[in-house]
């Protein structure tokens, strides 16, 4: 219930109406959106019970490792009611053709594979918010100072997921495991996404805000 309350408000991409349509415009819109979502994610993390008790360094390390997984999981959840489209924001939905034109076809295919998995599982909001927090706590940062404290956070979130499943889905005792088994594909997709946006940064054609740049640089 804490995680449901902490869930952020809807976010809007608001593409610049004065800019002509192009791949650069689409990428600029997405990078601006990601920058604003990062601010929201940092605020959200503080509401995860136990996260703020970690050292500042460990809070930073977890976010630096997991931010793209959290961004992607949110896109995935927003896209569940859609067919073959990715809902980057309430006002920014991309289909296969649009993704191809923007150079994001590989990412589109990977994220859609995740969407299909969660659709098949009929993932619920409670499960999605818990998985997001688990992705953060389980981000395998190599710079954790107090692993015992991080382990405690992982255990508490894992327990929340198991409690929910034993109450809501007693018919499927393996449901929590099925949900956790989606996380490797999420990690793989996020790694690809970070590499792709890092190469866009290196090319220097798309303006990027400072927080997004800072988080991209922390990942490579």
């Amino acid at each position: 219930s804490h995680l449901l309350v902490a869930e952020p408000e809807k976010i809007y991409a608001m593409p610049d109406p004065t800019m002509p349509e192009s791949d650069i415009k689409a990428l600029t819109t997405l990078c601006d959106l990601a920058d604003r979502e990062l601010v929201v994610i940092i605020g959200w993390a503080k509401h995860i019970p136990g996260f703020s008790s970690l050292s500042l360094g460990d809070q930073m390390s977890l976010l630096q490792s997991a931010w793209m997984e959290i961004l992607i999981l949110s896109i995935v959840f927003r896209s569940l009611p859609y067919e073959d489209e990715l809902v980057y924001a309430e006002d920014y939905v991309m289909d296969e053709e649009h993704s191809r034109l923007t150079g994001l076809l590989d990412l589109y295919v990977s994220i859609l594979q995740l969407v299909r998995k969660y659709k098949k599982l009929k993932v619920e909001k409670e499960e999605f918010v818990t998985l997001k927090a688990i992705a953060l706590a389980n981000s395998d940062s190599m710079h954790i100072e107090d692993m015992e404290a991080v382990q405690k956070l992982q255990d508490a979130l894992h327990e929340a997921l198991q409690d929910f499943e034993s109450g809501q889905h007693p018919e499927d005792p393996r449901r929590a495991g099925k949900l956790l088994m989606t996380l490797p594909l999420l990690r793989q997709t996020a790694t690809k996404a970070v590499q792709h946006f890092y190469s866009i940064k290196v090319q220097g054609k798309v303006p990027m805000h400072k927080l997004f740049l800072e988080m991209l640089e922390a990942k490579v």
Partner: peptide, 15 residues
């Protein structure tokens, strides 16, 4: 950590 100053600042903000 100097490189990650925005993240650092946002985590320290109480909001």
């Amino acid at each position: 950590k100097e490189k990650h100053k925005i993240l650092h600042r946002l985590l320290q903000n109480s909001t």
